[in-house]
Simulated assay, not measured.
Amino acid sequence: MNPVDLRLYGIIDPERTGGRDPVELVRQAVSGGATLIQYRDKHAEGRHLVELARTLKAALEGTRVPLLVNDRVDIALAAGADGVHLGQDDMHPNDARDLLGPRAIIGLTLKTPEQADRMGSIPVDYGCIGGVFATVSKNNPAPAIGLDGLRKILPHARLANRGPIGAIAGIDVSNAQAVIAAGADGIAVISALFMAADPKAEARRLRGIVDQALTSRGGFP
């Protein structure tokens, strides 16, 4: 299992940048304390996806912050990304691991306790539970699970997998502390970070909230 720091997991989606350069926004977020970056783009063509993923990877050079690609194992391979994040309907993690190799980071979206239970038999490095709160960053017909849903799924994920477990959807400075207090190891953030007027400052605020909440809970750091 590969170590992954999920404390502040920034998901960059060109549709959620306010028309600004995603590469510069990622640089700012990492400078402010983001610990992991995922590139997500549901609409771009393959060549553009590879080019931007390569540019993002180059921008993260020397920061020790990994770059993951959402859904697309082929794009991650072509761009030399550090791994992928997979949904329940994407390529099976076994196949992704075979293609990407043992050192790649593979994450998995978890929406139910049953999905969390199955983590024990598949080669993933972390899970991300969601959507916790309502969000406009993704077209998701399923209702938000809330903190109660997060608390329900987390024990299943802990028993099945030794990797960290994060939370996603609708998380910002108003509720990040509650998410960590509920048991998550980190937060995945899209709009609250990359639609912010100052992503570096917002990353610093979010990271501070997460670190303080983890310390209060007796967890990492």
Rank of each mutant, 00 (worst) to 15 (best):
G146H: 08
D90N: 01
G166E: 10
N94W: 09
D89E: 14
N94P: 00
D95R: 09
A79N: 12
A134I: 07
A116V: 02
I106D: 03
G146V: 11
L56I: 04
P143L: 10
D98C: 00
L100P: 13
G166D: 09
N161I: 04
V132F: 02
D148P: 01
A116Q: 00
D117P: 00
R151K: 15
A157R: 07
G127P: 05
K57M: 04
G127H: 07
N140Q: 14
G149R: 08
G62N: 06
D125W: 01
I75N: 06
G83N: 14
D82Q: 11
A167C: 02
T63P: 05
I122G: 02
V50A: 11
H92F: 01
E114Y: 08
G163M: 03
F133D: 11
G146S: 11
G146F: 08
R103F: 00
A167Y: 08
G87D: 06
L68S: 07
P66Q: 14
F133Y: 15
A76E: 06
T112N: 02
L86I: 07
V69S: 02
A53F: 12
L99N: 04
A53K: 11
E51M: 03
L77F: 13
L150G: 06
A78N: 04
L52A: 03
L60A: 04
I145S: 05
A142F: 07
K111A: 04
N94E: 15
L99T: 06
L77M: 15
L159G: 09
A134H: 13
R54Q: 13
G87R: 03
D71G: 08
A160S: 15
N94S: 12
P123I: 00
P66S: 13
L77P: 05
T63Q: 07
A144E: 14
G130V: 03
L67D: 03
T135H: 11
G149D: 08
A160Q: 11
E51R: 09
N161T: 08
A142I: 00
P141A: 07
G87P: 04
I165K: 12
T112V: 04
F133H: 07
V73C: 02
L56H: 07
P164R: 08
R103P: 00
I145P: 03
C128Y: 00
D90E: 01
V65R: 05
V132R: 05
D95N: 04
L86A: 11
G130A: 09
L110G: 05
I129C: 05
R72W: 07
L159F: 06
K57L: 04
A53P: 10
G107R: 01
T55W: 01
D82N: 12
K57C: 02
L110W: 01
R64H: 15
L150P: 05
D74Y: 09
D98R: 15
G149V: 05
S121E: 13
V84K: 06
R54M: 06
G130C: 07
P102G: 14
G149T: 08
A81R: 10
H156N: 11
P93G: 09
M119Q: 08
N161D: 14
G120H: 09
D117N: 05
V132L: 10
K138E: 11
V50T: 10
R64D: 15
T135L: 12
V132A: 01
G120E: 09
